Computed example of a mutant assay.
Amino acid sequence: MVQTIPAKMPEGAIVSGVEKPWHHYLTLDLIVNVLSYTVLHPFVAWMIPLCLRAQATPYDHPSMYVTVAWASLLTVYGILGLINDRIAYGPPREVDLSEEVIVITGGASGLGALIAEVYGMRNANIAVLDVKKFSEDEAEEKGIAYYECDVGDPKQVEAAGKRIVEDLGVPTILINNAGIVHGKSLLELSSEEIEKTFRINTLSHFHTLRAFLPGMLEEERGTVVTVSSVLGHLGAANLSDYTASKAALLAMHASLEAELARDPRGQYIRTILCKPGQFSTPMFANVKTPSAFLAPVLAPVDIAKEIIRLVDGGRGGTIAVPLYARWIDVLGVLPAGLQYLVRRWSGVDNAMAGVNPSSAKKVGTEKKG
């Protein structure tokens, strides 16, 4: 839905008819992002001692010691970060979109659709696998090849894979994004619903990897994106099937990286793990974040731009946003009592209280963290 915002805003911004104060949009992530480009950036930090010298400040002045030490610390930290990424994910591979074939599952709506349309506008070779059927005119208009396919069915994935190779070429970039959620308690879930969640959220990754990874290994180039969720670490009430399916992806992705490391051709494959927080999608419109400051709700574009940045750069890595998602592993090493208090304070187990399960089922391919 596109909203029209007046050029001159009133005292509080108006979103969906509700006036919100300016500080509503002030988040921890925004503050850290601003700091990272200012006082926490090595280049900016080195400007301070240079400016002091321009004012004829002696080298032995305390201000020079402090500013040089601070700039040196940031520089060393940045270099260590680059070394860490190089060891963990290998050197970037060269990516030429004209020679790549990108496959996106669940690309009919939400995050997947946004990524597909961005690459479609850049004239890349895009293949979307989704149960939704698109007309040829719509596909041609967007520059995207749509393949009607239930990614939870290995036979359909295999058949779609063969058609993609014939139509576009060997896929070299795979973005596993498809997912559903039911929003029911464990006792309310039917066996069919549980199986469907795992077929689409988890088993689909196995099916697509079995279909497309061999081609990447033969081509000796490729990128695999696994879209999981921060809830895979946490679990949450009324999301037992969803969180379990996403937790399985965390282990599957780690195993994939381990197997690629054992294969000599695996050094040419880059892997990206995406574990975001809450998404602002229609089926979770009634979900309220416990803290807009510490845990802001993400727009699909927030994740899409990070995925596209790493894919275009031929890099591997982990995408964990908002900021708390980067440190969620720390929760697991805290004493059990403290973990209980953190969960109570965060409100994670009450987040689904306002969601209508029937509305969640209607939008099966949209994503939420």
Rank of each mutant, 00 (worst) to 15 (best):
A139N: 12
E141F: 15
A127W: 00
I115Q: 01
C149F: 10
G106Q: 06
E148M: 13
E136V: 11
V128S: 02
Y146C: 03
E100H: 06
E136W: 09
I144C: 07
D150V: 10
A124D: 03
I126T: 01
V95K: 07
I144Y: 08
D150H: 10
G106F: 00
Y146G: 05
E100L: 08
M121D: 13
K133W: 09
V101A: 08
N125I: 08
D96V: 14
E141G: 11
I104H: 06
V103Q: 00
E138R: 14
G112D: 07
A116I: 06
E140Y: 04
V103Y: 11
Y119R: 03
L111R: 00
E138T: 15
V103A: 04
S98N: 14
A124F: 10
G143T: 06
V95M: 13
R93W: 05
R93L: 12
R93H: 11
G152H: 06
I126D: 06
K133H: 12
L114A: 05
L114C: 02
D130T: 05
P154K: 08
A145P: 02
I115K: 08
S109H: 03
A116M: 01
G120S: 01
G112T: 10
Y119L: 05
I115A: 09
V103G: 11
I126N: 09
K132G: 07
I102R: 01
G112P: 03
A124Q: 08
A145Q: 07
F134L: 10
D96G: 11
A124V: 05
I102C: 00
V151W: 00
K133V: 12
A116K: 02
G106R: 03
E99T: 14
Y119T: 03
G106Y: 09
A127S: 08
F134Y: 13
E148Q: 15
N123K: 15
P154C: 03
I144T: 05
D137K: 15
L129F: 06
D153I: 09
E99G: 12
E100A: 00
I144K: 11
E100I: 02
Y146L: 00
M121G: 11
G120C: 11
A145V: 07
P154H: 00
L129I: 06
V95L: 11
E148D: 03
G152T: 02
R122V: 08
E136Q: 14
S98H: 12
Y147Q: 07
K142P: 11
K142Q: 15
A108I: 10
E140L: 14
G152K: 05
E117R: 04
E94D: 14
